[in-house]
């Protein structure tokens, strides 16, 4: 009897210890990240050009560079990132639960996500729109002619919702075959399960490279939605949101000022006060963010300005081959809509 009671109190104590240890103080994300020594960044399960791991496990892409930029700002070292591949379906829950510090996973900025999920979109690092890809053998040249078709789509995305809106608005019939992973949806389309595959146009270009015979498929000209893609953080930490936002803005600002990873060291001798402020030589932009004065310098030096990041990952000379001129992803000074608030 006695040992039973002892055992009982022992297990009770353990339970309490567990309950109490689960009450953790809600410190700032930046402090947590600094303490951990690396940034946990949620990325896709493989969208070439955005976030994709090569055979050696090295991640590249425009979203990956967003993670690297924040790491460069916080640590002064762009490589201190741990990537966590997430499905579209899981991404927000994983972010909310605190398993990742930031989500850079070609995620569309919408009102319900921004306001309803207690999340904060930090900006747009790629302006995209939804499109369709079909087999050339289908002899269809316009999305208006899609009727009685089966469409493969990734579940838990805005794509899934836009798809319905589009077919409803145009009074066309379709069946949506929804998959959890983009890869599965693409494979199903490739195998003939669906007549059409739909996602953001950048995604179409990227996924097409994975198909058995990319030349057999064609992207239809229509863009059926606005898809501003950007990184996301939790909504309860203003400082962390600012760090992520301005990490993006300084890359855009650097391009506008003509500062790149290659010429940044020679730029140090410039007289332009804007550039001096950007490089942390004048004023202290890092102070109000809680970062080192050379935080923006580190981003540009190690990751590059927006133009470099774009051309390296999705530009015309990559397999994705998305020409930048004429697209919204061009600086506002060149007819695009990329516009960074003043860094001062």
């Amino acid at each position: 009897m006695k040992t039973n009671i002892l055992k009982f109190f022992g297990s009770l104590a353990l339970l309490f210890a567990f309950v109490i240890s689960s009450v953790t103080a809600n410190a700032g994300t930046k402090d947590d990240v600094t303490k951990k020594g690396s940034l946990n960044c949620g990325v896709s399960q493989g969208v070439p050009g955005f976030s994709n791991a090569d055979a050696s496990g090295k991640w590249t892409g425009i979203d990956v560079d967003m993670c690297r930029a924040v790491a460069a700002a916080v640590f002064g070292d762009a490589n201190k990132v741990k990537y966590q591949p997430l499905s579209a379906k899981d991404r927000f829950e994983v972010l909310k639960s605190g398993q990742i510090d930031m989500l850079a996973r070609n995620t569309t900025w919408t009102l319900s996500r921004d306001a309803g999920l207690a999340l904060e979109f930090v900006g747009t690092n790629f302006y995209d729109g939804q499109g369709f890809i079909v087999r050339k053998a289908a002899k269809i040249n316009s999305a208006k002619k899609l009727n009685n078709v089966k469409v493969c789509v990734e579940t838990g995305t805005t794509t899934e919702l836009n798809l319905r809106d589009y077919f409803k608005a145009n009074n066309l019939k379709y069946e949506a075959v929804a998959f959890t992973k983009a890869d599965e949806a693409v494979a199903a389309y490739d195998a003939g399960r669906c007549d059409v595959y739909t996602t953001d146009k950048s995604g179409l270009a990227a996924q097409r490279t994975k198909m058995k015979n990319p030349a057999e498929h064609t992207v239809l000209p229509e863009t059926i939605s606005k898809e501003p893609l950007g990184p996301v953080v939790r909504g309860d930490d203003q400082n962390w949101k600012d760090i992520a936002s301005w990490s993006l803005y300084v890359m855009i600002e650097a391009e506008e000022l003509g500062v790149s990873s290659k010429n940044i060291d020679s730029m140090k001798s410039t007289d332009n006060p804007n550039i001096k402020r950007l490089l942390g030589l004048e004023g202290d932009t890092g102070k109000s963010l809680g970062l080192a004065p050379e935080w923006a310098y580190n981003i540009i030096k190690q990751v590059g300005n927006y133009g470099e990041v774009y051309e390296k990952n999705v530009g015309a000379n990559t397999p994705i081959g998305l020409a930048r001129s004429g697209s919204p992803n061009q600086l506002w000074t060149k007819g695009g809509i990329l516009y960074a608030p003043p860094v001062r």
Binding site: K89, F92, G116, L117, T155, G156, A178
Partner: peptide
Amino acid sequence: ASVFAGTALSQTGKA
């Protein structure tokens, strides 16, 4: 599991 705990969950966030 896939329609409700999957799609509906990610569209509403009501985990």
